[in-house]
Nucleic acid binder design. Structure first.
Lengths: 244, 244
DNA sequence: CGTGTTATTGACCAACATCAAACTTAGTGG
DNA sequence: CCACTAAGTTTGATGTTGGTCAATAACACG
């Protein structure tokens, strides 16, 4: 299980990488009130139209955001890892304009909006760090627009895999050689704007070319460089380890 | 020309709609130092890799953000109207990960990052309003992911036109019956992930069906309801006139 | 050992891309 | 005001990527 003493450890580490935080600020962050809950896979935590009164922080497991389009078809807009605050936007946008759900079993900490707002007012610099976090989210959305708008199927998938590897490495859950595999091909299809059948064939293509390994609990990356160039991947937009 | 006494008028009006601002906060906003400049159409204001030291606020004209993909092809990620702060993200993300350029001749006010940062620290609530603004940007990015990922050509274009109409109406530059037309078909193609030829044919299709009027200085919307339903458009994600 | 979910395959088809050329419009300078 | 140019729009012909449908195979889990 998780150490429930310091649930915001991962967030703290990430914020510290880009913002210099005082000990008062760090204390305020660690002192946020929260409410731990566990969910099985495929559970909606937020629905379109909801008016959440608390933010949700991922302690363990993976979440994703999506929206239904006409007639049952869906588009996934982001994946979220431990250490993320995936719906921080609900702090300022009253009505949710999309769904948030678990992809795997997950443990999340709910933090009342009141407390978060108070934090941003008492510690504006810390608030700015959280703001920055949401700006990286936006940068990832922009990159997805590019991915879906201008790359062919193989490139889209390769790019998504590279992004996952880099983001998971940040939180110690993977690296350039691979990471735990938590997506179905249907998930991949909904994230890349492709059909399941075509995702399947593209994955086979990537395997045949020796860029990734066979299916399993882990996704093995056999040739990082080739995978990155197949997806025209450059990690700049993730803004990791970038100082102000 | 523009009243240069209060360049942040439009921004102020927009922020006030969703956040209750004190007169001290409003004064601070109006008191931001700035530097007015005019640019012709098709001028880069920021390039990938730049490290801007000032934010840019649109007083007049239209800007857009884009990124080059392999081999000269481009993807447009957003359009920006008067009253927008299109690169507020550069306040916290040191390296620009995309281009910002003028679509039409434009007048912009540059505001030093220092002053903006100071503003967010002195007036955290005002900072939060600006934060909210960037969250709406992100909501638009998400909607574009959906548009490009899961809608057919005709729907993508119809959706984009509806979005423009609503956003332009907010700043008094258009409404459901039409708005000034500032996009080339190549722009539309780069924004929707389509080819120019196909955009051309889709526009003809929309005209033939009587949803929009002929090309000109203005885009005339002949049948808003049909256009909105062709694009599966619902304005919720724009979060206009939504109170906290 | 069965049952539901996920992955894989094949056949067929449509939407959209590409290429290349012609036409239209707007802007420029004489 | 006209001629010239460049940018933008339109058209036709042709090709390909990726979608759809439907069936089967492989897992995973109780």
């Amino acid at each position: 299980m998780v150490s429930d003493q310091k649930p915001f450890q991962l967030l703290k580490r990430r914020l510290e990488r880009s913002c210099a935080l005082s000990s008062a600020e760090l204390d305020a962050l660690q002192g946020l009130p929260y409410n731990l809950r566990s969910y099985p896979a495929n559970t909606d935590l937020m629905r379109e139209g909801d008016r959440p009164s608390q933010g949700c922080y991922i302690v363990e497991g993976f979440l994703y955001r999506f929206k239904f389009v006409s007639e049952g078809s869906r588009q996934i807009m982001s994946f979220h890892l431990p250490g993320d605050f995936p719906d921080l936007q609900s702090l300022f946008l009253a009505r949710a304009d999309h769904y948030l759900a678990t992809l795997t079993p997950a443990v999340v900490a709910f933090v009342p909006h009141d407390a978060l707002l108070e934090l941003t007012v008492q510690h504006p610099r810390l608030g700015n760090c959280l703001w920055r976090d949401t700006l990286i989210d936006a940068a990832i959305f922009r990159e997805w627009i590019i991915n879906i708008g201008r790359r062919a199927a193989l490139g889209r998938i390769a790019h998504l895999l590279c992004e996952q590897a880099v983001r998971l490495k940040e939180v110690g859950l993977g690296d350039e050689t691979g990471f735990p595999w938590f997506l179905t091909q249907a998930n991949l299809a909904d994230a890349t704007g492709l059909s399941v059948v075509h995702v399947n064939r593209s994955l086979q293509n990537l395997r045949r070319r020796g860029l990734i390994g066979p299916n399993g609990k882990m996704l093995n990356i056999r040739d990082w460089d080739k995978l990155a160039s197949a997806g025209y991947f450059s990690p700049d937009y993730l803004h990791v380890r970038e100082l102000q």
